[in-house]
Write a protein that binds this DNA or RNA. Structure first.
Length: 260
DNA sequence: AGCCAGGACCACC
DNA sequence: GGTGGTCATGGC
């Protein structure tokens, strides 16, 4: 397989699921999946995977996405051009749906470091996030998830009990899938968009968190979530998720914590 | 020390 | 259908 063009560090440490699931050491990224250790490394802008794991890497890094073409399409203004220039090579990732759901159930009103610790505390011996069945009967109190614990328990119970079907979500269009995911306790619009973007590969999803809120307000003059939705869909449409990832990175680097 | 965090939920308007 | 208060706890 041909190597994948990417800035691996930006990709793996950009607040996407790999940020919570993979370990970095000496510039290499690794994790255990099904008992196997998978390792990724970057050589001159190209990513190489450990032997036998090329296919997994290609899927994770969405190797079919042509970044140059995407950049050309979403370069609508100076702000996003600056983000693309600064974070060139950052790719969206395609992750396991359940792992993505668990990670972003932990994410609300939290921070990247804490989310990572929470997710790491819910891994099984095979290195993967505990299944819904296992999670439903695991005591999570030592993880100090706060008010998120009942969300995780409730969602795990629904999935384990067959009350919620991820396979069914896959067949729905974006708007319906977004509504359906919000049937899960602890899943609102933002988390639903994260699950759709990082777990289901729906590139039109645009997770609107506090940083994106600041970015959209400061750089595009739109504030309310509804107006942001409309603006984003009109401007970036089917590639809104890529625009979001780059604006999120730029916002965290350029906007101070104190809102003006 | 005190404010903030990749928000969701509920009551109330 | 929109808005404000509340939620548990770690980071910085």
């Amino acid at each position: 397989m041909e190597k994948i063009f990417a800035n691996l560090k930006l990709t793996m440490e950009s607040g996407q699921p790999p940020h919570f699931l993979w370990h970095q050491k000496d510039g290499r990224y690794s994790r255990k999946i099904g008992g196997q250790l998978i390792t990724l490394r970057e050589e001159g802008g190209r990513v190489r995977a450990s032997a036998g794991h090329e296919k997994h890497a290609a899927e994770l890094l969405r190797s079919c996405d042509d970044l140059q073409e995407i950049y050309a399409t979403i370069s609508t203004d100076a702000t996003i051009k600056r983000a693309i220039s600064r974070y060139s090579g950052m790719r969206l990732t395609k992750n396991d749906e359940w792992e993505t759901t668990v990670a972003f159930l932990c994410s609300q009103n939290s921070n990247l470091k804490r989310i990572r610790a929470n997710v790491q505390g819910m891994l099984g011996n095979d290195g993967m996030v505990l299944s819904a069945q296992a999670l439903a009967k695991t005591n999570l109190r030592k993880l100090n998830l706060g008010y998120r614990e009942p969300y995780l328990k409730g969602t795990a119970a629904m999935v384990a009990g067959g009350e919620f079907d991820f396979a069914g979500v896959k067949k729905l269009n974006y708007a319906d899938a977004r509504e359906e995911l919000q049937e899960l306790p602890g899943v609102g619009p933002k988390v639903a968009d994260c699950i759709l973007l990082y777990g289901f590969g729906r590139l039109e999803a645009f997770p609107n968190d506090v940083w994106i809120g600041r970015a959209m307000s400061k750089w595009y003059g739109v504030s309310s979530p509804k107006k942001v939705e409309a603006f984003v869909q009109r401007r970036w449409g089917p590639l809104a998720g890529y625009a979001q990832q780059y604006l999120f990175a730029l916002a965290r680097d350029e906007i101070s914590r104190q809102r003006p």
